[in-house]
Simulated assay, not measured.
Amino acid sequence: MPSLPCFSRRQGLAAVLALAATALTGLAQAQPLTGKTVKLLVGFPAGGGTDAIARVLAESLKDELGATVIVENKPGAGGQLAAQTLKTAAPDGTTLFLSHDHSISILPQVVKTPGFDPAVDFVPVAGFATFVNAFAVSGGTPAKSFNDYVAWVKSAGGGKGAVGVPAPASVPEFLVKVIAEKYKLDLVAAPYRGSAPMMADMLGNQIASGVGSVPDFIENHKSGKLHVVAVLGGTRQPALPDVPTFAELGLAGFEDVPYYGVFAPAGTPKATLDQFSAALAKVLAKPAVHDRLTAMGLTVGHMSGEQLGAREKAYTATWAKIIKATGFVPQ
């Protein structure tokens, strides 16, 4: 059989190389974050609940993405600084914002010029959990239940008291306003720069009570250093089965639970969003990760970018009504 002409061999080799190049290009397009460094912005200090959650996820995400994943804390103004950082980041998926409801749904409603518009500047990548906020009392108080706390404030403080909140003009602050009105108390919300400094003051008995997420309180509640006495949401939390909801205590209207999600700068390619979302879904399916986040007080479940966007819009609408009812004026 005659051998192939020399030009055919060259053409065949060229075709093979072209196919290989095409395959590699397609792989790079399908896995745009592989081999890169991905920053997860967190809008609160290290040591708080959101920071701890981000670090749990980052550890496993690096394997699924084939990328270096780091947590970068940008504390200040209830996550506002981190959100502003995301807005100006390159839309290539290497800078993402891991946030709960406050920075995305609440801040734009309570700050006149937040410096970002989630609907314009961000795109939802994926959600990974819902959670509830909780009311806790310091170990230095005699209260072991919410009704005990109300009675203690009325007797020991003459009806006056300070309640720590992780950020000004936040869901916890609005909850303090509603509690004060319902129970005829003169409560002042004391804003902190995140849950970590608030927790430090609670553990040091510098402030008698605080409102924050269950992940903020769960470990110190289990150790008896403070007591979670009520939770928001429609049902009791699996991590805190003995703690009643506010609805059980007669304070309805706080059943819509907040969310945790990851957001990217607007204009980030869909292939990049899809790669991260798929990696996050795989991470959440790992029993070790799922169980660890559940123990922190989260209800774990993957949400697509579309589902997270819908969840964010619904939650924003719910709190728009509550914020308006309190008479709050954006600052």
Score class of each variant (00 low, 15 high):
34 T>S: 15
314 A>V: 15
310 A>H: 12
99 S>C: 12
25 T>Q: 06
154 K>M: 03
69 V>N: 04
186 D>L: 11
316 T>M: 08
278 A>K: 15
168 P>A: 14
244 P>C: 05
138 S>I: 03
221 H>Q: 12
106 I>D: 00
263 F>C: 02
230 A>N: 04
278 A>S: 15
45 P>W: 03
322 I>V: 15
206 Q>P: 05
194 G>E: 00
158 G>F: 04
219 E>Q: 15
17 L>W: 14
296 M>A: 11
229 V>H: 04
188 V>C: 05
176 V>P: 00
194 G>P: 06
30 A>N: 13
139 G>W: 00
170 S>P: 09
205 N>K: 00
238 P>K: 00
4 L>Y: 11
162 A>F: 09
10 R>P: 12
67 A>V: 14
36 K>L: 08
93 G>W: 01
220 N>W: 07
72 E>V: 09
280 L>F: 09
68 T>W: 08
28 A>H: 10
52 A>Y: 07
21 A>E: 01
94 T>C: 13
274 D>Y: 09
71 V>N: 01
75 P>N: 10
116 F>S: 02
123 V>L: 13
107 L>R: 03
105 S>Q: 01
296 M>C: 08
200 A>D: 15
85 T>I: 13
22 T>H: 05
240 L>M: 08
308 L>K: 00
328 F>D: 05
305 G>Q: 05
258 P>A: 02
109 Q>E: 06
189 A>L: 07
218 I>A: 00
54 A>C: 09
32 P>W: 00
155 S>M: 10
252 A>S: 10
210 G>F: 09
277 S>P: 13
309 G>Y: 02
18 A>W: 10
58 A>L: 03
254 F>A: 00
94 T>L: 14
118 P>C: 02
88 T>F: 13
203 L>H: 07
91 P>C: 07
235 T>M: 11
35 G>F: 02
281 A>T: 14
67 A>N: 05
262 V>A: 02
7 F>L: 05
251 L>V: 09
281 A>P: 09
228 V>P: 04
182 K>Q: 09
294 T>D: 10
43 G>V: 11
72 E>N: 11
133 N>Y: 15
199 M>P: 10
268 T>N: 04
260 Y>N: 15
23 A>N: 02
96 L>I: 10
242 D>S: 14
163 V>A: 05
52 A>H: 14
30 A>E: 01
123 V>Q: 06
139 G>P: 14
241 P>H: 05
172 P>T: 09
208 A>F: 04
163 V>S: 01
282 K>A: 04
84 Q>T: 08
289 V>P: 14
268 T>K: 01
103 S>D: 06
213 S>E: 04
121 D>Q: 07
21 A>K: 04
162 A>E: 15
89 A>W: 13
292 R>D: 15
180 A>V: 12
46 A>K: 05
145 S>V: 06
123 V>C: 14
48 G>Q: 00
144 K>E: 08
147 N>S: 14
201 D>L: 03
255 E>N: 09
72 E>H: 10
148 D>H: 03
117 D>H: 10
8 S>F: 15
168 P>Q: 05
137 V>L: 03
262 V>Y: 02
213 S>V: 12
320 A>S: 04
68 T>Y: 08
215 P>E: 01
125 V>M: 11
4 L>T: 10
31 Q>F: 11
130 T>W: 03
172 P>Q: 02
125 V>F: 01
18 A>R: 05
156 A>K: 11
290 H>Y: 14
177 K>V: 15
119 A>S: 11
271 A>W: 01
